[in-house]
Amino acid sequence: MDRISLLQGIARIGVFVSLLMAFFLLTVKTENKLANRLFAWFFIVSAIDLCGFFVLDYIQDYVNLVIFRWTICLLAMPLFYLYVLAVCYSDFKLKWKHLVHLFPIVLVNLVFLPRLYLASDTEKEIFEFLEQMPEIYFIQVLIELQYVFYIVSSFLILKKYREIYLENYTNPSTSTYKYLFQMTTVFLIAHCLVALKNVLRYSDFRQLFLWLNVVVGSVALFITCWLVMKALNHPELFRGINSKLQLTKDFLPEENEVTKEIISNKDEFVSSQILALKNYMIEKEPYLDPSLTIQELSNQINIPVRDLSVLINHRMNQHFFDFVNEYRIQKAMHILKDQSKSQLTVLEILYEVGFNSKSSFNTSFKKYTNLTPTS
């Protein structure tokens, strides 16, 4: 009884915190309202799922409601997946095609419809052992397959997001990538515990299953509180990228004998472009702009952005992010060696050379010099 009371207490707190988070996301002022609304609905769905630990005693006579509460969790991962898309891509909008994500919950409820939803009250009394019904097994298998699909899809989105950012932006909001990557990883680990719990449900380890319920509830509460703290500390955390941006490798022609010959003939021209670009970086110092993008640099030197992307990311074999930050670090080293500027702090120097965060500056400085700025 103590264990059940503990689990119900944890679940009640989890539901409260989830709904609090949803309220915060729906009311906080931000440019990315769609992402916040999707995440708010994710927390609302999570709250409905968590409340199952303590509301079943009140709704067990309403089989239709019990079944629907079981199936509502099939909306959680599609909402999270769409949230990741909305955060990563600033121009993301919901379209009719996204209704396909409702297919699992619609399918499940159609499977249950003939046997449960339309059954008479007398017929529904036979479903005392609901968890042992084949339909419930079907739901659990579908949930596992759905989870794998959306977790893998989310990781692939984040991988592409990071690559595009490095090729097109400087001082990217790495906190966005880290936050979403950490969140997706935590969800993956948490669901592994849920999957283990569901396996133990049908084993002889009943006591272990009951204790694992408490662990899962505690983990869910911890994750929810962690996300609340992240949101409160970083209400404007994200900066999305344009979904129309492509990786350089996606629009480079495949190498064959013809393209190799063309590339060979262009080597001299490419070398002159690289030299002109390097001279421009040294003379005009565009890297001092902390928000410099490859599009802006393209406009300044009158080279089409696609050509400039190929030049830097392919010909010079550098991400645009690394290319620009290398000049910033060289400028910072020059300032550090200048005795007339010895009174400047590291923070003042990093802002002067175009960085906008100390962590980004320290990481780049160590990468190019194998030293720290204070060494």
Rank of each mutant, 00 (worst) to 15 (best):
P304E: 03
K331D: 05
M333I: 09
K331Q: 03
H319T: 15
P304Q: 01
I303H: 14
Q330T: 09
D322M: 08
I312T: 11
E326P: 07
L308R: 04
R306Q: 14
M333H: 00
F323P: 14
N325F: 03
A332D: 00
K331S: 11
F320P: 12
S309M: 09
F320L: 11
H334W: 04
K331F: 03
H314T: 07
V305G: 01
N313S: 12
H334N: 14
Q330Y: 10
D322Y: 11
S309E: 13
H314S: 13
K331I: 01
Q330C: 05
S309H: 12
R306V: 12
S309L: 06
E326W: 10
L308G: 08
N313A: 10
M316D: 08
F321W: 09
N313P: 11
Q330K: 15
H319L: 05
V324E: 06
A332R: 01
I312G: 07
F321L: 07
N325P: 06
D307I: 15
D322L: 09
P304V: 02
H319I: 05
L311N: 05
I303Q: 14
P304M: 03
Y327L: 06
S309V: 06
A332V: 02
H334Q: 14
V310R: 12
S309K: 14
D322Q: 09
R328F: 02
K331R: 07
L311R: 02
I329W: 02
F321I: 02
A332Q: 00
V305Q: 06
R328G: 03
N325L: 04
D322K: 05
R306C: 04
N317M: 10
F323T: 12
L311P: 08
R328S: 00
R306T: 15
I329N: 00
H319Y: 12
N325Q: 15
N317P: 04
F320S: 07
Q318G: 02
I329H: 01
P304C: 02
R315P: 04
N317S: 14
V305H: 00
